[in-house]
Write a protein that binds this DNA or RNA. Structure first.
Lengths: 343, 343
DNA sequence: TTGTAGGCGTTATCAT
DNA sequence: ATGATAACGCCTACAA
């Protein structure tokens, strides 16, 4: 029964009738299969064209048991961090004949909960970069294979153990150590970290940073900034806080590249030369880091490798028999220091 | 017959048997439908959980005739222009319960032709921002409803008229007129347009620009640059060309924001003050336009409106009966001038 | 080269 | 409240 107003689309049967052949012959023609004469094939394709026939995904996928649709949940695709990552997933997914379904889940308590469930229902596995609570994760994804990206330890530990859940996390310590060596080596003494306060936060960054700085005989400075919609403003705010205080830093490691751009901007507004008066280092290695002046020194994440790890794990989970145990896999990636002009 | 190594996923029948009920009762429990006792429902859900049961999309969609999967083809999702656009599509699609499938088709003759067909087969309609030849469009999309974004007139005219094809194009003239009024009004006399040469190009930009400039009693300057992988370099190259020539411009309208960033950068390298020595105006209105120094004056495109037009047209095409005529719809969007610091 | 039969997993309809 | 039956549209296997 066609829905209101819509006429039913032509099916394989109509095409078969119009072409005067069997359904099977239509299948052969449409899918470039052998065992059909050129003439019959042409007649069938003409009939299909005339009826605007297109094989139904549903019927086809049902019988072929395809299951190659990957959901990627990010908070905001307009954020270059997520779009660069999504771009890598697009390449990897395409190379493996998976469709990549992008789902935006903007931060906030219960924004579009039902919507999310609907979208997730269209997908055979998912990769999520989000700060959803463990409880919500279980409710939304059910027993769908899911790989979490850069999730808080606390979240991971609270996940239902019977569900297929893995994770790829970012290990900040090695990169941070490399930056600190670089900054200390170039004579910086008051090194600050911009740390955005998130509700789900764990302060693990702060502690790692403080330890690493002390290891190098310097005193750590942590600039705490409230999370905002706009990381650019977060960066500017960080500079305001740090430079309105008694002992301003001579090096700033931003929370990420986006906030580093804000740091650069506010320093320029205050006529503080970068890197002479203050070095600035970002985290992520976004492509637009070379757009600004001076070009941003940063800890680059290998997005392609990051995405590949997650994708491999998804495929792995999908291939595991449902009865077999699904030990949650934990993988890690870390950064590489890219020294440019800002530090 | 399960594929190599993989065990068949639990189906509704297994769940029904384990719970000791009929398939229909399982359906009722899984979908929160009425007509089931709380106790039975709980028993069924437990059985489902135990078997890691998840209703098959294929079976479900087959019987429900869903057809709510939208493909978005872009050349490079890591390019902020496309990701900001894609982000709007994600919001619109989600609000209408469509899944958004992102497909990257990087420029180049026959890169992943078969791959593209496979992906397109997973989708019920598509929106494409690409410079594919009309011939390839017909072969790849067949009779799939398709909306082209900012396609060349030549391409549109060559499309097979029997296929459901519409288009939303960008009308540059109104925005360009606004910029020129602004630049002339602030005393600029040698106004240049950076024009990237693409293979499929039509030089329509150049002509519109030249006409509008002459209308205002100034002499147009067109800086032609070969297309490259990197719009930033294109912008820098444009400045090199223009300022190594006898009469450099005092205002540059870049091909897009990304190349405008390159223009800004090269001007800074040459110690030319912006906007004093040379005004710079971008096109697109990307969010990162406020990240650079000085902030970029630009012609902003309303991405949300652009996407909404395309989406509405897709829905419209899908709702049209296959027998009914499908007159190709052509819609247009234009820019709004956003004056910031660079011009 | 072509046709026939069967089943993929689900939901809708109708009967109990 | 629950169950039996019939599609949904397609492809694989086999028969002609």
């Amino acid at each position: 029964m066609p829905k209101r107003g819509e006429t039913k689309r032509a099916g394989i049967i109509e095409v078969a009738e119009l072409a005067g052949v069997s359904r099977q012959t239509v299948t052969r023609a449409m899918n470039d299969m052998p065992g059909i004469s050129a003439q019959t094939k042409r007649r069938v394709l003409e009939a299909a064209e005339q009826l605007r026939y297109r094989p139904s995904r549903f019927g086809r996928e049902l019988v072929q048991q395809s299951a190659r649709s990957l959901g990627l949940i990010v908070s905001d695709l307009a954020n270059p961090y997520f779009s660069e990552l999504a771009s890598e997933f697009a390449k990897i997914a395409a190379a493996n004949q998976w469709a990549l379904v992008i789902i935006e889940k903007h931060p906030g308590p219960d924004t579009g909960w039902e919507q999310l469930r609907t979208l997730v229902g269209q997908v055979d596995a998912a990769i999520a970069y989000t700060d959803l609570a463990p409880h919500d994760i279980d409710r939304i994804f059910g027993s769908l294979p899911l790989v979490l990206l850069d999730a808080a330890e606390r979240t991971l530990n609270a996940l239902s153990p019977s569900r297929p859940r893995s994770a790829v996390n970012i290990d900040l310590a090695p990169g941070l150590a490399a930056v600190l060596d670089h900054l200390v080596g170039s004579g910086r003494s008051r090194i600050a970290l911009v740390d955005i306060r998130y509700p789900t936060d764990e302060s693990v960054r702060r502690e790692t940073f403080a330890r690493l700085v002390r290891d190098r005989g310097r005193e750590p400075v942590v600039i705490e900034v409230e999370a905002g919609d706009d990381d650019l403003l977060v960066g500017r705010r960080a500079v305001q806080i740090a430079f309105d205080a008694p002992h301003p830093p001579d090096a700033i490691i931003a929370f990420n590249d986006m906030s580093a751009f804000g740091v650069l901007k506010e320093l320029r507004v205050r006529d503080l030369a970068v890197p002479e008066a203050c070095a600035v280092v970002g985290i992520d290695g976004l492509k637009i880091g070379v757009f600004v002046e001076p070009e941003l020194t940063t800890l680059r994440l290998d997005f392609a490798a990051f995405a590949q790890l997650a994708f491999d794990e998804v495929v792995n989970m999908c291939a595991t028999a449902p009865g077999a145990p699904q030990p949650p896999i934990r993988r890690h990636v870390s950064h590489e220091l890219v020294v440019r002009q800002s530090g």
